[in-house]
Amino acid sequence: MAKKILIVDDEPAIVTMVSNRLKANGYDCISAKDGQEGLTMAKKEKPDLIILDLMLPKMDGYKVCSLIKKDSRYAKIPIILFTAKVQAEDSKLGEEVGADAYVVKPFNAQLLLEKIQQLTEKGSSTGVPAG
């Protein structure tokens, strides 16, 4: 059965692009356009992985990540933080909220696909270092 990936990003073009890419590689995609919706969908759909933008309306990516990871029912879902923000503090913060990986925009599609594969194969989040 195809793995299901939830993309949470407020840029519709990004959602379209990333979905295309993922679908072309055999994944199923669902999406949300703000933090609140993202959180709700994550709980409802229980995806195999979440790609999470940081600068989101209604609830920012860090908060969403933190809430998901703190909830034992969903903590095992791997989360890739996906963002155009990159400062040293931001990736440190990412570690603090329990993210499994950190991908910067503009992104290398190959790299993203590799990370998705690693994280969904393991089946549970193990704290792969951000990079």
């Binding site: 923000k85 990159v86 503009p106």
Partner: peptide, 15 residues
């Protein structure tokens, strides 16, 4: 600014 530059760049690159 970093966000505003990088987001469209990401879209263009991926497209």
């Amino acid at each position: 600014v970093s966000h505003e530059f990088r987001t469209p760049l990401a879209i263009i690159k991926e497209g």
